[in-house]
Every structure is written in C-alpha cells, then in structure tokens.
Design a protein around this nucleic acid. Structure first.
Length: 530
RNA sequence: GCCCUCGUCGUCUAGCCAGGUCUAGGACACUGCCCUUUCAAGGCAGCGACACGGGUUCGAAUCCCGUCGAGGGUACCA
C-alpha cells in the first residue's frame, strides 16, 4: 500500500463525540489522521458526532477541542474554523442523512422493515437456539406502497434496514491489515434509520465521509468488522469506498484489551499506572483542583496537560504505539513525525499502554529543554499553587528559577516543581519527615552537637553561594576528620524536613543564611524537646 | 456460538513481503557495578522473546497447513 502516491488530495477526519473528555486512544487515532494530512499537504477535518443530542454541547465539546489545541493538532475544517463541506456537527446534517436513506431505498440497497421488536427478538432467539447466524427474515419488509399501507394499517411502524447480499463475499484491502474477505451471508440486515427517523452511526458516518470528500478513513480496529456493511452503504450511494486503514487498539497496561476510561480501578493495580496516576493526583491536589476520579486519570488527555507533561513527549510516545520508523529511532521532532509518517509503518497487533515508557519520553524531552524553558513551564504551577504572587515578583521569579536550575532532572513533568514546597513555607511551619528526622538528627550519636557546630560555622560563613558553602563545609569536616556525609544529611533534614532532594549547597544558597539558621535552630529545639 | 483480525524479550518494537549476514537488534522496565552529600541523572554490565505442532527447503522468526491463545465485532451504541 503506497499512500505516498495519494498526493495532495488527502482528506482525513476524526469524529469525536462530545463526552467532555479526550481519550488517549482517540488521540492516537487523531494523531495518525493528522499526520497523514500534514504529510501530504491535505486536510484534517474535525467532525462532531453529536447525534445523541447533548444537553450542553459546549461544555462537552470544549475540553476536547482544548485537548487538541494543547497538543497542537490543528484542524482545517470543523468547529470554530468552518469549512466548505459543513456543517461539521452531525446534529445539523439530518436532512442529508434522510436523502441518503431515500437513495438507498430507491436503489434497493435498503428496505423498510415493519417487524415489531418482539418479533425480531423471537426470530433472533430461534436462530440462536438453532445455532444459526441471525440476519433479519425480511418477512415484514415492504418494498411497495401497497405493502407499506397494509403494514401501517396494522399499526406497525418501520425502520430502514440494509438489504445485505446473501451470496458472495465482500473483499477489501485495508491499508494496515491487508486483504480482508468476509462472506456477505454473515452480515445481518443492519438498521440504518430508527422508527423515529433518526439515523445510526454507520449511515451517518459513511454519508459524512462521502459528502466531505474523505479520501482515507483511518480509525480504530474495532470498526474493522463493521466495514462490510459500510462498504455496502458506500456502494449503495454510488461511490467506491475511500482508502481504509484500521489501527490496532491501544490496550490496557500489560494486556491486549482496549483501554477504557471506565476501568480505572483495574488499571490502578498496575504499579506503573498507579505511579503515574499518583504523580498527577499529587500535582492536581496542590493546584487546588478537585480532580474527580473519572475525569482526571492517565486515560484522559487533560491529565497530562494539568500535570505538566510536554505535548511533544506525549505525541512522540503515542506515535510509537503501533507505528515505527525503523529498528532504533525513538525521538522524532514534530517535523520528523510529519515527514516520516506512513500507513506502511503501522503495526497489526494491539499495543499496550506503558506508563513508564511514556514517562521516559517525557524525561528525555524535558532534559532537552534549557533551564529558562523549564522555568517558563514551571512558574505557572507555582503561581497556581499560590506559593508566590501572581504574577510573581522578580525576586520570587529568581527563586523559582534557582529551584528549577538546582532540581535539574528531578523535575520530570512541570508539576514536579511542586515537590519543593519547603522553599515557600515560613521557617516555623516547616514540616519534618519523622523517619528522616529520627534517622539523621535524633538518633545518631553526636548529631545534634555537630548540627550546632555547623550552625555556628554557617553563621559566620563568608557568603551563601554554592561554591562558598562547599568550601565552608569541606573545611568544617576536614577539621574534624569527618567525611562530608557525616554532616550533610542532618543539615538537609533540618532545613528541608526531607531525607531527599537536590544538592545541599544549592538548597542553602536558595534559602539564604537567615532561613538556614532559623531552621537549624528549630530542628535543634525539636530534637532536644524529645 | 458465529464472523473478522492478530500472535518476536514483562512492555513498545526491528527483522517477515523479496528464506541464509539472526548463537534475533534497539528502547522502556528490572538486576548488579561505577560515580556520589541523599534522591535523581549519567556510565558500564547483565537478565530476557521468534505461541505450539507439522510440512516445504541444503537451510525458516521469515513460506504453507493445523492447533492453541488473544483481541474486536455480532444492537433501533459509537
């Protein structure tokens, strides 16, 4: 399948339904579509699948569009931007579907079925009992006006069903799966229009694709089995189907089952997934966001935006979930992703979502940023957490910058900057990690005496810069025949309350002499208090 | 049940179409060591896979058949 030859006429689409959240698997599908459009200079169409009559369409759609904007997946036609093939809301296209239904009926590709639900149910049960596939008996099919009148006189209403062939087979070439062949006889006469006149997904989707001139339908594999009936609709409408590409699903961690936002509890049993989830929850909590469990989790794109992930990292990771360029390329810039993408490279089997691997992409992208860039990403988090004024004053900005610089690789997602709350709390309300305090200050013999001694040394230390502090510490330990480790840990716990963190000299330099001394004093007081 | 699809390290994958260069390569994770003021990061090393069974062939991860396993579909859902 050489889609490179398809040229500039490529038109692809993604049809989100306004549910209020953007699913990670959906993003992967959208990404592949977008990439294909950009690769060929074609158009990426966003079409809103709102046939279910949403009450607050805006509320349900906006988070999804926001997700697309954040990721940089811009659409050429669709909500907000319009386009020549609109409207782009299915709820506004009902008349178009109606015309298509009539065409199908006229051509004999579909028929009116006056069967009552209980009659269908009985037939289906009978077929199942006999272990036969069921596909509508057409006993209540009406092709002529007389038949319709007769059924209607009985008080029956009708739906429109596809008049599927009962012989031969449907063959098509899928750009990912290759040749697929399905016996027509295994296809049921699917309903395309309900008794109330509303149309079903298969019909609406095909009609929209036809009307919007879609050239490549790139969608999840769950639609592969639905393809024959859609091909029947395409042909019934007098057009040949576009290029079809069915992407393997994005699966649960360590499994092949499609990732679903409803199975959070199950995913949390996966340690890696739980770790990612906790990281995000911690950040969201500090930002004061009431993160409801069903909308704030790693299956939903908002999770990453709110936690401070880099869109490029997410995109890069997602692109490699089911696609690869060669045996070793992992990092691809935005331009490279567009330049290299091809349906040829798409895998056939499901790919499970790996939180750790995603995190590793995030780390690599974060490491590639300059300190200033990281600072720009982190500052809004500190502001939103209310730790500094908004906007931050120059001195507070300098402090955040110093923290970001000192933290280095430890800040993996921008929200991780919120791990360093100790730099923003008053000296007298710093909280101590009990275990660390016990281990480093209370328990070791002579620890408090040493701490007192270094406190005095620091009181008269020349200046509070990392290099100078290092000199002070080195001479302090050298004079006592100790290793640096003998004092560093106690001081760290005393001034930050924690056992871990970045370099001690950076910590002290950011805190400054006054806070350092105050905190050591407080720790000493606490230690002697028992 | 029936239909469709898929099956290489725990995970993402390269290799398969055009069989030998594959004692199967890379990445994440994991383990160990080094570095080191803790934690990260980094460096080095290690662990680890062709689902199974037949066949074709001098030779099969690669081609053919079967089995098993997995996923999806089977709605007046999308």
């Amino acid at each position: 399948m050489n889609d490179h030859a398809a040229g500039a006429g490529v038109r692809v689409r993604f049809a989100p339904s306004p549910t209020g959240y953007l699913h990670i698997g959906g993003v992967r599908t959208a990404l592949f579509n977008w990439l294909l459009a950009r690769r060929h200079g074609g158009a990426f169409v966003l079409r809103v699948d709102d046939t279910d009559a949403q009450r607050n369409l805006d509320d349900a759609l906006e988070p999804i569009l926001e997700g697309f904007r954040w990721l940089g997946l811009d659409w050429d036609e669709g909500p907000g931007v319009g386009g020549a093939r609109g409207p782009y809301f299915q709820s506004q296209r009902l008349a178009i579907y109606q015309r298509a239904v009539e065409t199908l009926l006229e051509r004999g590709s579909a028929y009116r079925d006056y069967a009552r639900p209980e009659e269908i149910q009985a037939e289906r049960a009978e077929a199942e009992a006999a272990r036969r596939p069921y596909h509508a008996s057409r006993r209540w099919a009406a092709r002529t006006a007389e038949e319709r009148a007769r059924f209607e006189a009985e008080g029956r209403t009708s739906v429109v069903r596809l008049a599927m062939p009962r012989e031969g087979s449907c063959r098509f070439v899928d750009a990912v799966k290759g040749e697929v062949e399905v016996e027509w006889a295994s296809e049921a006469d699917h309903v395309v229009q309900r008794a109330d006149g509303s149309c079903l997904y298969h019909l609406a989707s095909v009609v929209d694709d036809v009307e919007m001139g879609i050239t490549h339908v790139v969608r999840a594999e769950e639609h592969l089995s639905n393809t024959p009936r859609q091909i029947w609709i395409w042909r019934g409408l007098g057009v040949e189907p576009p290029v079809l590409a069915h992407l393997p699903v994005v699966a649960e961690p360590g499994s092949k089952v499609k990732l679903s936002k409803r199975k959070l509890d199950k995913y949390l049993k996966n340690p890696q997934f739980a770790g990612l989830y906790e990281r995000g929850r911690t950040i969201a909590a500090k930002l004061g966001r009431e993160a409801a469990a069903d909308t704030f989790n790693p299956v939903i794109v908002d999770f990453y935006r709110i936690s401070g992930f880099l869109p490029d990292a997410l995109l890069n990771y997602l692109m490699l979930l089911g696609w690869s360029l060669d045996s070793e390329t992992e990092i691809l810039s935005g331009e490279e992703r567009i330049a290299h993408f091809s349906l040829d490279g798409v895998n056939k089997s499901p790919a499970s979502f790996d939180p750790d691997k995603l995190l590793s992409f995030q780390e690599r992208y974060m490491q590639a940023l300059s300190i200033d860039e990281r600072f720009a990403l982190c500052l809004p988090f500190v502001e939103q957490a209310g730790w500094v004024t908004t906007p931050a004053t120059p001195s507070l900005r300098a402090k955040v910058l110093a923290i970001v610089a000192a933290a280095g690789d430890r800040i993996k997602v921008a929200g991780d900057v919120l791990d360093y709350e100790e730099f923003f709390v008053p000296d007298d309300s710093l909280e101590y990690d009990e275990k660390a305090f016990e281990k480093r200050i209370r328990k070791p013999n002579g620890a408090t005496e040493l701490l007192r001694a270094i406190r005095d040394a620091l009181a008269s230390a020349p200046e509070f810069t990392p290099p100078s502090l290092e000199v002070s510490f080195q001479s302090f330990v050298a004079a006592r025949g100790l290793a640096l480790g003998a004092i560093v840990h106690a001081v760290r716990v005393a001034v930050t309350g924690k056992a871990v963190g970045f370099g001690l000299f950076d910590i002290l330099s950011i805190l400054g002499r006054e806070a350092t001394l105050a905190r050591i004093d407080r720790a000493l007081a606490l230690a002697s208090a028992g």
